[in-house]
Structures are given as C-alpha cells and as structure tokens.
Design a binder for these strands. Structure first.
Lengths: 194, 194, 194, 194
DNA sequence: AATGAATGAGCATTCATTCAT
DNA sequence: AATGAATGAATGCTCATTCAT
C-alpha cells in the first residue's frame, strides 16, 4: 500500500508547508519535491498528478480531523456538550497546525471547481457528523423539534469556518481555541436576549 | 471620471458573465474583451490590470448590494426586523442575479490571497452594517448585553454565506429567499429549545 | 488569410532549416521561433500547435513540388517523356534545396504515426499524378496493357524515394539529377536485357 | 555469450510485440521488461541501452531473414529465378510475422537518424545479396550489360519496400505474397510494352 | 544474476500586457 | 480613444538509466 510508505506522508507534509509558505499558485511540484527531499519524478510514483497530491492531502488531514473529533465526542452524553467539544477540537487542531490552517482556509479554496468538488466530497463526512449531533439533540429535547437540520448545520459549519478564516486572515494573532465557548454559546442560543 | 463612461460598466458586466459561464481560471482578458465588444487593449484604458477588473467588479456590485440593504433597513425600527430584512435582501438579490451569485460565491474565491484581502476590504462595509444592527440590538435590549459583536457578526455572515454557497453549489435549484425566515430565526435564537 | 502573411512563410522556412540542422527531435518550438525571428508565442498565432507547423510545412512544400511537376509535364506528349520529366524534376528540386531534402527523406519520417498519416494524405496528390501518367501510357500503347497501375506506381515512387534517400544518407555528395536518365530507363525497361 | 541466454531472446521478442502493439514512441523500456517478464534493470544486463535493444532486434531478425533467403536462392540457377525467390521470400516472411512487419516498415523508421544509420549497416548484408544476383545476371546475359548495379538494386529494394509498406499501412488486409510474381515481372521488365 | 525504487533533465503552450498605428 | 498583433516568462510530467539490496 503506497499510503503506508514513509515517502507518501513526507510528500503530503511537504505540500502543506510549501503551499502555506508560498501560496497555492506558487506551489510548484519541484518545490514540493525539494521540500520533501525527493526527486521531482518520485512524486509521480506516489501520486497520479499534482491535483492528486492536493486531494490526498485533504483526505488525509481531514480524515484525522474527523476521527479525532469522533473520539472526543464519544465520551460525551449530551448534544450540547458534543457540539462544544466539536467546536473546541476544530479550533484547537487548526490552531496547532498553523500551516494546515492556512492551506485549508485560504489556499486550497483557490483550486479549480473540479478539485473543490472533490474536497466537498471529503467534507461531507464532517457535515454528517454535525447532522448526527443535531438529530440527537432534537430527539432528546435539547434542541427545538422544529429545528431544520440542514440550515442549522449550515449555520454551525458556516460560523466555525468564518471564525477560523477571519483568524487566519488576521495572521493567527489571537488565541483561537479560547473563542470556542463563546461561539458554542452563540450557536446554541443565538443572538436573542433571554 | 472613467467609471462613468459606458465602456467601464460594459467591461464589468462582461466580466461577470464570462467568469460565471467559464469559471475564474478560464476567464481570460481576451474573452472579457470580446464579450464586452471592445478590443483587448481597450480594457487597459479603463482598468490597471486584470485584478483591477475583479476588484472593481466586486466594489461596484457590493456597493449596490450594501446601498440597497441600507435603504431597506432604514424603514425598520427594531434590530431583529433589520436583521430579517438583511437576510431577505441578501438572499433575494443574489437569487435575482444568478451570474453574480456564481461569481461571488464560487469563482472569485479562487483568486489569490492578495486579491481576496482586497475583496475583504470591500466586505468590511457590509460587516460594519451588521455590527451596527448588533450594537443597536444590544442597546435597546433586543440582544443580550453579553453578546460579543465580532463573533455574532461572524456567525451571521458565515451562516448566510454558507447557505448561499450551498444553494449555488446545488445549481440554485431551490428557492433561496424562502429560507430567509428560518435562517433569521436560527440566527436570533440559536439551536437551543426554549 | 494567415497563409499569405509573411510570418507564416518565415516560420515554415525556419522550421525546415532548424529540423534539417538539428534533427526532428531537437527541433524545439523555441528554436524555430528564434530562427524565424519571432517570439515563441507568435508561432501560435499562425499554427495550432507544433504538429501543425510540420503538416503545413509538408503541404506547402509538397504543393509547390506537385505544381511544378505538373507544369513541366504539361509540355510533354508521351507518357515516357512525362515520366522522365517527373524523375528529373523530383531529383532536381530536392537537390536544389538540401535542407528540404533532409527534412522530407529523413527527419519527417521520425514523426509519430498520426502525423505520418496526414503526410500520406498530402502524398496522395503526387501518387495520383503518377497514376495518371501510367494510365495514359497504357492507353496510347507506350506501356503494356497488362501493367498493374498500383504496383507500377509503387515501383516508381519506391525507386525514386530509395534513390533520393540513399543520396541524402550519403550526405548528398554526388550529383542526384544526373541519375535521372538511368533511373528513368530502369523504370521503363526493368532489369531485363533487350 | 549473452546472446545465447534465454532472456536475450525473450527481451527482443518482447520488444517486437510491444513496439508493434504500442508504437515506437510508446514502447517504454518498462513495458518491454514487463512483456518479457523481467525487471527493468535486467534489460541493462543484456543490452547497453534502449537503442541497443532495437539494433539487436533488427540484426537478429534481419539475420534470419537473409539466411533464409540465401537458402532459398541456393537452389536456383538463374538470376531471374533467384530474384523471384527473393521477392517471394521477402513478402512471405513479413506476411507471416505481422508484428515484425509493422515494426520494420513503420515503427523503426521513427527512430532518430543515428539509429537509422546503424540499421542501414545491417541492411547492407541484404543489399549485397541483391547486388550479387544482379552481377550474376549481367554476367550470364540475363540482364543488360549496361545495367547500373547500384541503381537497379535501389529500384529492387525501393519497390519491395514500398509495396510492403503500403500493405502494412492498409492494415495488411490483402494477400502480400500473391503480389510477388507481378512485382518480379515489373522489376525485370519495367513499364515498357514488349 | 536479478530487482525495482529513485532519479532529474527537458519542452510545448498559455495569456496578461504592451505599443505602434 | 481604440485597436489587436506581438511578446516571453513560466511549469507539470515522462521515462531511460542507475545502484543498493
């Protein structure tokens, strides 16, 4: 299995660094190869083409992302708590890997429509995790029975994404994880005063 | 003033059509010129370079966008109502200009970081409109006094953006404006059951 | 019409020189552009791609070739004379353009199958000229009525081609046109003693 | 002697198949290795480089070719008969090995000038066989004493080659050996009516 | 002898921008 | 003001060959 060989990860990790530091359009294959410490041609022993590096990168990183969040959530009983853990994990993981944050929030969005569609496929795994929490919350009465799952999911994901993107655009100069409780509070109670 | 000459708008409108129909990376200057009915070189009499077309496009369209919303809001007393009008207007205007929706939600995001920073500058006008509503709501007791304006604004904008993007990605095949009340409800009351 | 513009011929003539002097596989587009005194990109204003240069080159040169031979032949009454004129013209024209001879006999044959098929299309014009002479000769009794036109044409073309190729491979170091009478004699009378 | 080891022939035979089925430019060393059932590196234990495979292939196959024709000719008395046997054998052997026919008539001609010069060296053995027949024929009065051996040989070889190439280009869809008598007749008597 | 992972040089083509007319 | 022909920099990928095992 190619994915288990050390060079596979070397190249993916190199791609994250190169894209974060040079930007999507300045991340030439030769730069990635150099950063990974392999020859240009070696890239093509592990990836079909340049796009394949980027998709694999996203699948690989996002796969870990979702797994971690699932693990964290597993220990919690209530949907509200699960949502808090999710926001915290989301913010924490991205703030712990500054390069990855830049790549996912800014650079990878410059890819063409085709690649973005493939990225969206990967994201669906995350979105259905959100859905599961929402349905659970509705069933056990934590959330309103009238809550439209799809819209609520879009609010949750859209909000987290916007918060992280703003943080990255501001050069990650404030602490992201500490915003999690407030964001969580916002998501579960909205703007309205009690 | 160049911006008042007819060719200025011709070119901007041509850019919207060409980008929406061909995608950001297939929107060559020569295509835009052809669509606008001018020679390639003429573009450079009205715009400094290609990036300048895109920024001007965004400024122009977003300018109208904000003006319209300000007009609509002006007639309303309460922050909650103003927020509803804003969501409604946002959804309605984008659903009335399919090309513009594609360009702002999908295509322009493929631009490089530099251009996106400039686009964000333009967006600030919109975001401060949101802020104004939030502050007003906090002052008159509609919204919690503890509400963190910045985060709430990110939730509001992030949610609307995500809802519109999902709608565009689904080929605009359902009615967007009719989602406004639910989205508004979500934003003001969150997920939590009463 | 692009073909009438001076740069069109400049580029084709440059291609002949570059291919003859560097060989087919060392004839990069940038070399052709430099030889033609234009920018690389200019090539693509006149030709679809590199292959298109080569096909156009062959069509252009072979077009002249056939026209000239047709003119020469027009003045002759008998098929045997026409054949002589054809062999003489064929040999003379190629010996007058050493670069072209190298390109048609050695270099262009290294092209891929697809290009060679297109080249063969162009050659058909020449081959049917041979056929016309053969049919005429059969009708007026100069050639045997049993002569199989297709095979005879293959003998004539195959012989001329082999003679020219051998001459090119020997660095064009002997006089080609002076072989025409003997080759003509061979073609019309074969090996057999009278 | 490397040439006597089984893998030497395995690789040559694999090269013929791979080139015939994929074309000269798509016949990568790795494909030949795979077809031969050996590792890429093993090729280089038996051949100096890729070009060496092709020259060896040609030497090997053409060696058999000439040997066979020499055997067939040995039984004949007269030059005219020998020529007939040669044409028949030439056509028969190539029509019995479709892959080899494609390789020698179409694919190997795409090689670079250098390789083609080496191939010509190998061909000289065949050409001198033709010369021998011609000289013999001139000596015993079958052929005209004025016959220029070199040109006659070029006619004979050029004609056979053109006939075979045309047959290959037409997908070998008619019977080649049955053309031998007519071609032979043409070669010995030319176009002229008796 | 045999393997096959690794190497790295080399090139056609696009397109934003210019400038002579 | 307007044109559009000309420019030229910039890059992903292939594949013959090597060499440590």
């Amino acid at each position: 299995m190619k994915k288990d060989k050390p060079k596979y990860r070397q190249i993916i990790d190199a791609a994250v660094v190169v894209i974060a530091e040079n930007g999507y359009h300045q991340a030439q294959v030769s730069k990635i190869a150099k950063q990974a410490g392999v020859a240009d041609g070696t890239i093509y022993l592990y990836f079909k083409n340049k796009e394949d590096i980027l998709i694999s990168l996203f699948q690989d990183k996002m796969g870990h992302f979702i797994e971690r969040i699932e693990e964290q959530i597993a220990g919690k009983e209530r949907a509200v708590e699960k949502l808090l853990v999710m926001v915290e994990s989301h913010f924490t993981m991205l703030s712990q890997d500054r390069h990855l944050a830049i790549v996912t929030q800014l650079e990878l969005r410059q890819s063409n429509k085709e690649l973005r569609l493939k990225i969206n496929e990967v994201l669906k795994g995350y979105l259905s995790l959100v859905d599961k929490i929402l349905v659970e919350g509705k069933e056990n009465g934590e959330f309103s029975g009238n809550l439209e799952t799809r819209l609520a999911r879009q609010m949750i994901f859209g909000t987290m994404d916007e918060v992280v993107t703003t943080w990255v655009m501001n050069d990650q100069k404030y602490d992201l994880p500490s915003l999690a409780p407030s964001v969580h509070q916002l998501l579960i109670s909205g703007c309205k005063a009690d």
